[in-house]
Structure formats: C-alpha cells, structure tokens
Nucleic acid binder design. Structure first.
Lengths: 222, 222
DNA sequence: CAGCTTAGGTATACGCTGTATATATGTCAA
DNA sequence: TTGACATATATACAGCGTATACCTAAGCTG
C-alpha cells in the first residue's frame, strides 16, 4: 500500500503545504498535519525541507514569484501601481501570505526581485536614491499588496430592544466612531477593501511624485 | 515560604506579563514562564485571566491607554500627527506591542478611545465621514505608531576577498537594490526609522488635507 | 551476480505549549 | 466550630517542532 505512493519531492511538499495553508491558515499548518495530508510520517518531510520555518520561506517565495508578470511602463508611477496591484491579486488568493510575509526574517530571490522591480521603475523615472529609499519604507507591507486591517470594533447586540441603549452608551463614549459608522455607507462590515487599498496607495504615489518634482532630499542627505 | 507571598491579583499578573514580554518577546511569554516569574503555578494565573489570549488583550489595552495624553489642537492635522507620534513613543518602548496589536481580533476600550480621538480631530477639522473613514484605513497600523519593516536583505560576506565577487553577482541580479544601497547613506542597517516613519506619515496627512480641500468623495458615495 | 552506498520513510522520544479537571489550603462569616 | 468561598496546586491531555536511530529498497560498483 505504501509502495504505491510515488516518492515525495520538495515541490510536492510545497504544493501540499500551500493547499493546506489555504484551508486551515498558517497556524493550522503543522508538520504532523501536512504529513497526514501527504500520507506520510511527519519526519518524512524533513528529508525535503529543513524545518517548518524554511518551508514557510519557500511558500512565500512561490507566491511572490507569481508577481513577476512583465510590466513595463514609461510612467514610473503607473508601473509601480500596476506591480503592486498584481502583487495584491496574487496574495489575495492566499490569506496566510499576509502573516507569512510579516514573519519572514530574510528576503529570498523572488522577494528581492519584486523589490528590485519596484525600485527599478522609480530609478528609471528619475527619482533619487534618497527618495526611492524613503518611498520603499513608506510603502511598507503595501508593496506586497496588503495592509493590516483596522481592528474590528464590537458590533451592536442582536436584540433589537437593547440595540438603542447600547448605541446611546456607545455614542457617548466614542462619538466620532458612531458618527462615522452612522453616516453614509461606512458600516464596518461592508468596507470595500479594494477601494481602501487603492485610496492609500494613490496618496502615497502622488506624494512621491510631488516630492520628486520639488527636488526633495532627506535631512540626513541635505 | 509560599505563605509570605501576597495574593496575586489581575494587575500584578498584567504588570509581570508586560515586564516578561519586554524581556523575552511575545513568543517567549508562556503561561508557565510567567507563573515562574511570579513564583506561582501556571494554573494560578487562570484565576485572574481567562486565558493567554485575553492576557495579551489587556496588555495591549494597558499600553494603548498610555497614549491618552490630552492633546488638543485647532489644526486637525497637527493633532493627528501629535497623537500618532505619542502612540509611537509608547509602543517603541515595548517591541512586542507590534505583534500583539496585529493579532488582536477585537478592539478594547483604550483602542476604541484612541481611534475615536483620531477621528474626532478629523471631524472637528471639517473632514467628511467618507474621508475620515478612508483616512483611517490608509493609516492602518501607522495609527499605532509603527509599520512593518521592509524585509531585511542578505548582507555581503565578511570575507573581504569574496566581497567584490558577491557584490558583482548581486548587482547583476538586483541592480536597483545595489544602486540604492551604494548611494549616499542608505545602507540597510543604519536606517533612521523615526525619519522614515514621519516621512510616510506626512505624505498621508498632506494627502488627506489635499483631498479635503478638493471636496473629495469616494466613488461609492458619489 | 554480490555487496555496499545512500536516499527516502518510519518509529520513538524529548521538551515545550495552553489549559481542563480535580484537589487542597487558608480566610472569613455565621 | 462549621461551613463557604477564594486562591493556589497537582495532575493530565492533546498538540507542537524536531533530534536521533533505525529500516528498507533502489542503484551503482567490483
């Protein structure tokens, strides 16, 4: 029975790990569970992967490598935008990638390539090394296509009779929050994440461009 | 000997937990280790705290509650800036807070108060609910005074003779990265985190103000 | 063909985690 | 004095990553 299964290889492990993480999240991805999914002892995985941390490293690399569609644009700002939105599209399909990227301690090839592509576009646009450097920091995780959500706020009680009282107490303690939540289409649950992401991204890109044209230099380089 | 120790209370546990997390990080903060630090069985902690997750909740609350210095300013932008920099000062003293905040699933009182204060300043400045909403998302974790660092890039080999070759290979694969790293004062290690943070924050704040004056509205509210 | 090497998989075990459950102990009220 | 209650303990379970030792089958070499 076990003789039927073809031998494992690094790629099979990697693919199964990604599929499992898609299902149960990064926390649920344990070596034991992954072994089980592959019909194999947990320790078998260590023949193909150094340890769990390295496994996650290569999972990230695999996803980030998918960013690299050939985007060329004379307008550096458009290219940056397109690359970041491509990154967003790729990471959006794997919720665990957010946490995975945030916990990596060293950049791999694909990660470096993505960063290099972003910086390359800015250099071609004529931005100074100083500005490019600051821009990369300003983008932060946004360069991978995601941002940490604002922390979820408690929702009102389901019981309609208690709803009004809760809202009143709430409004007294946190007037601005309630004002925002009760104005227009800004209820917490139905945020248009995509729009929020692009909103912030465009502010940053426009800021970079504006500083570029103004001949900005950092204080340490003044 | 154990009769000498005064009885534990929630506050003592909380204080010890924060001190321990300062030392060993959030990952190193285990119930067993915290119990040991307090001279107590791990299970004793559960009389004062529901579980580890709730403990971290209140740790975050304690830190965030420290933000609330009375900052009033007629200029909404200055007030926002001051509040966020106050948050940064408070979180900077506790490295674990970054991870802790990012993993919280529900906002507590102090967290809500901080958010309310930020939004209140913007409302007093005349910004629309629509814009306030988008601005909060754009700030993201930056409203807590931190950002995820750009992923560390590999450093060159210490051996001087191999250094040049490594740099050359590196430059071919990632020209823009090397160009930036070798221009001016942008070596990876000696980034001025404070300056980077303020740089991005000011771009965002200026963007908000600009959109406000232009009478911006989101597409969904057009 | 015999024998050895080695890659791939297994079995077992260690030390760690959070925490459920049941028990003991010490303090105060009746 | 007797109970009740709050607090701390002891034990135990299921899970984790992974070090170590072993086995087994394939492939190359003499």
């Amino acid at each position: 029975m076990s003789s039927v299964r073809p031998p494992l290889d690094r790629d099979t492990v990697l693919t199964a790990a990604i599929a499992l993480a898609d299902e149960v999240g990064l926390g649920g991805l344990s070596m034991r569970r992954l072994g089980q999914a592959l019909g194999v002892t947990p320790m078998a995985l260590y023949k193909h992967v150094a340890n769990r941390e390295e496994l996650i490293d290569v999972m990230v690399e695999r996803i980030v490598a998918g960013f690299d569609v050939p985007i060329q644009d004379d307008d550096w700002r458009r290219e940056l935008r397109a690359r970041i939105l491509a990154a967003r599209a790729a990471t959006a399909r794997h919720a665990w990638v957010r946490t995975a990227i945030e916990t990596r301690r060293m950049a791999g090839d694909a990660v470096l390539s993505h960063m290099d592509a972003l910086m390359g576009a800015m250099f071609r646009g004529g931005l100074s090394a100083d500005l490019v450097h600051h821009a990369m920091h300003a983008l932060s995780t946004r360069m991978w296509g995601f941002t940490r959500d604002v922390m979820p706020t408690p929702s009102l009680p389901a019981d309609v009779s208690k709803r009004a009282a809760a809202l009143a107490a709430y409004a007294e303690a946190y007037p601005a929050i309630v004002r925002m939540a009760s104005t227009g289409s800004h209820a917490g649950a139905d945020c248009d994440e995509e729009a929020e992401f692009v909103f912030a991204l465009d502010i940053l890109l426009e800021g970079f461009e504006r500083l570029h044209h103004a001949g900005w230099r950092s204080e340490s380089n003044a």
